[in-house]
Design a protein around this nucleic acid. Structure first.
Length: 745
DNA sequence: AGCACGCCGACT
DNA sequence: GTCGGCGTGCTC
């Protein structure tokens, strides 16, 4: 691996100054607290620091980890109140590029720099050296008393001469209890030694097993490979489902490795399936390092260190992997770039795809955005020449794209009380009769989204939020999907007292499964939703079971739109293709289009006999019409024109100002105060809070204001000024700004 | 008086 | 973000 130039001696703040004393031996340290400023500290008595050094400093009564910056000291060096850096960690200093990136993110997202620094240091265990592993080795003569168990242990150590075993590992391998090993240690035959923790990561080999690519894939791969090492660039890799985008961008990853540099592949968290990782392993002869919320502290530490020291070649990770301290990053790939999961909402609000573009620009490396259904902003950026555009229009297997059709629910809908049209039911029956699988997609957990009383019209609503309570029949409760409030499902109406008058309205996945059990009782149906799944491991297991053909029909929420390929899946039914449209979200149409294209695209991915059936009341809508016609351009053209007319992102800029407080009134009052404080008549328009939905999230009532501006306006600066002018929010009220991350670049 | 809780400002 | 200080208000 080529190394970045080590800091030269003249950069070392602790080294003898070449031209005059250096500010009296003080440096600036950014600490992981909610502050924008760095603090001034005295240099450690012994250690040497450089910009980027990770250090421990006292902060009030605590000790915290911070990063040395190259800023000039803000406090007079003569100040004798300064405290000293306590410790310099023995890890590579963060690169100037990474610190510049953190600064950029902080400024852009209106987040205190300290909070971004916290994201850079999210593996505290990595800072201390990995504790050595205790091991046993053969050290002396066999003992006097040789039992059968002892003989087996000695045979193993003889077979693998010089090898160090862990105590339990050796006992396990020999099929004896750990006590036997202890006995041999006591007898002096074996000895305990400390060995450095093993070589952490197998190197990915760029040419381990290159794939045969189709002509179209080859051209696309060559284009991407040509960008690696050629400075900053952004390429939109726009390929239909099944076109083999992954194989194409893996060629760029291989090129980065060949050049001795590292590669980062960002994926939506959900896509980190075993099958996905195995594809990497098959191509590169080693599993990539993983980075996501389910990675335990020990592995986290090893990955962080491996990334910083250069031992890790490829990281596949969720959005937070973007903040890893790569030693020599050569490429960033953002897979499924349109995926809303890239947007982080809590803590600091940022969009990992856009921040990847920024990191690429700062590090002067290529970024590849891959998607079958690119986001509108990426498409516009590609159309306007800001991004390169590489298109894959054919499936790599040569398989045809699925045939999509709409069922007009006004004319061919189901009988009363049912949700699956006869046409869809017979398609499911035929598909499963052939031994193939069907997937029914409905993005609604539970049994029914609304319950009302037939006698008095009472609707069950969340006491905290402006949303209906969802009937979860398997659990026997009504639940709010915003705040987690649940209550038992009563027998009688709480409003009028009538018994057995409560009716569920509309379908959820549980209700669809129930309907299928009635209509096609001999088929094996499984429900896949976040209620049923949970951890990443559990999900991987469930997906694997489906892939093995352990069921005929899957009824699933959003989760099933991603995940891995089910080879026998040839029919996808969309229970409600209109769901999500008309929700007032400026991205509703785009989201629906992407989701439907993605979920129907899973039909017949390998065999090419896929069918997608969408139940809709609006078959003429641009989303449905474009899907049925098989020409996505029809959708993009309409949507881009629409956005441009409405000056919505990416043609305008949007920010959400989220006001939250434990008390509903306080949040509402402050939101109104903010709206009044907004300068009127300028280029920025403030909307709300009147029409904003209220939600209770983790004990806090939240509502939103929206600020809309023309594209060339510096909305971040405007927001800063506005919020400063509005003054500090009252006690308990928090104001969080979500500068629409998807519209700026 | 003694303490729990919430708010506020400091933290180099 | 996290801590301690200090005020308010309530209880043993």
């Amino acid at each position: 691996m080529t190394r970045r130039a080590a800091p030269s001696a003249s950069d070392l703040f602790g080294s003898p100054p070449a031209e005059g004393p250096r500010a009296g031996g003080v440096v600036q340290v950014l600490t992981p607290v909610a502050l924008d400023d760095s603090w001034t500290y005295r240099l450690p008595d012994d250690g040497v620091v450089v910009p980027g050094s990770i250090v421990q400093v006292p902060l009030g009564p605590r000790k915290v980890v911070g990063v040395v910056t190259a800023e000039t000291p803000t406090l007079a060096a003569s100040s004798n109140r300064l405290r000293a850096i306590e410790k310099v960690f023995d890890v590579p200093p963060l690169s100037a590029d990474l610190v510049a990136f953190a600064d950029w993110v902080a400024r852009y997202t209106l987040t205190p720099r300290g909070m971004v620094v916290r994201m850079l240091l999210r593996a505290p265990e990595a800072l201390d050296p990995e504790p050595p592993v205790r091991a046993v080795v053969r050290a002396g003569e066999p003992p006097e008393r040789l039992t059968d168990a002892r003989r087996r242990v000695l045979a193993l150590t003889a077979e693998n001469e010089g090898m160090a075993w862990t105590r339990s590992g050796l006992a396990h391998a020999a099929g004896v209890s750990p006590g036997v090993v202890d006995g041999l240690i006591a007898a002096g035959t074996l000895a305990e030694v400390e060995v450095p923790a093993g070589p952490p990561f197998r190197r990915a080999e760029p040419d381990f097993d290159p794939r045969d690519l189709t002509g179209e894939q080859r051209r696309a791969a060559d284009e991407l490979v040509g960008r690696v090492g050629a400075g900053a660039s952004v390429t939109l890799l726009d390929g239909v489902t099944g076109s083999g985008k992954t194989e194409v961008y893996l060629e760029a990853v291989a090129e980065a490795l060949r050049q001795g540099r590292q590669a980062l592949v960002l994926v939506p968290e959900i896509a980190l399936t075993k099958a996905f990782l195995d594809r990497f392993a098959a191509r590169f002869g080693a599993l990539p390092a993983e980075w996501h919320s389910d990675v335990g502290p020990k592995t986290r530490a090893r990955v962080w260190r491996g990334v910083a020291e250069g031992g890790v070649g490829v990281v596949v990770g969720a959005r937070s992997a973007l903040f890893l301290p790569f030693r020599d990053l050569g490429l960033i790939v953002v897979d499924e770039e349109h995926d809303p999961a890239y947007k982080q909402e809590e803590w600091a609000t940022y969009h990992a795809r856009d921040m990847a573009v920024v990191r690429g620009r700062i590090e002067r490396i290529p970024v590849v955005l891959a998607s079958a259904t690119p986001s509108i902003e990426s498409r516009v950026n590609a159309d306007r020449g800001r991004y390169r555009h590489v298109v894959l229009s054919e499936r790599a297997t040569g398989a045809a794209m699925p045939t999509l059709m709409a069922i007009d629910m006004r004319r061919a809908g189901p009988p009363r009380g049912r949700f699956l049209a006869p046409g869809l039911v017979s398609a499911i029956a035929e598909t499963t009769a052939r031994g193939e699988q069907a997937l029914l997609f409905l993005n609604r957990r539970g049994y029914a989204p609304l319950t009302l009383c037939r006698a008095c019209g009472h609707r069950f609503q969340c006491p905290n939020c402006s949303s209906w309570l969802v009937d979860h029949r398997f659990r026997g409760r009504l639940a709010c999907h915003h705040c987690g409030h649940t209550e038992p499902r009563p027998e009688a109406c709480p409003s009028c007292g009538t018994l057995d008058a409560l009716v569920p309205c509309g379908p959820g996945v549980e209700r669809i499964a129930e309907e299928l059990a009635t209509l096609l009782p001999e088929r094996r149906t499984v429900v896949l939703s976040s209620d049923v799944l949970g951890s990443v491991q559990r999900m991987r297991a469930e997906f694997d079971a489906v892939a093995r053909g352990e069921c005929d029909i899957v009824v699933g929420t959003q989760l099933v739109a991603k995940g891995h390929t089910f080879p026998k899946l040839t029919l996808v039914g969309v229970v409600d293709a209109d769901l999500g449209l008309g929700s007032g979200d400026p991205r509703a149409a785009e989201r629906t289009f992407q989701l439907l294209a993605q979920v129907t695209g899973r039909a017949g991915r390998l065999c090419g006999r896929g069918i997608g059936v969408m139940q809709t009341y609006a078959p003429e809508s641009p989303v449905i019409a474009a899907l049925v016609s098989g020409d996505p351009e029809r959708f993009y053209a309409v949507e881009i024109a629409e956005r441009e007319r409405g000056r919505m992102p990416p043609f305008g800029r949007l920010a959400a100002v989220i006001v939250s407080a434990p008390q509903r009134e306080r949040a509402e009052d402050h939101a109104r105060a903010l709206a009044r404080a907004a300068p009127a008549g300028g280029p920025v328009e403030v909307l709300g809070p009147a029409e904003a939905p209220l939600a209770l999230i983790r004990g806090r009532h939240r509502l939103r204001l929206l600020a809309a501006a023309p594209r060339d306006h510096d909305l971040s600066a405007w927001l800063r000024a506005w919020l400063a002018a509005a003054g500090k929010p009252p006690a308990g009220v928090e104001v969080q700004v979500d500068v629409d991350p998807q519209s700026f670049l």
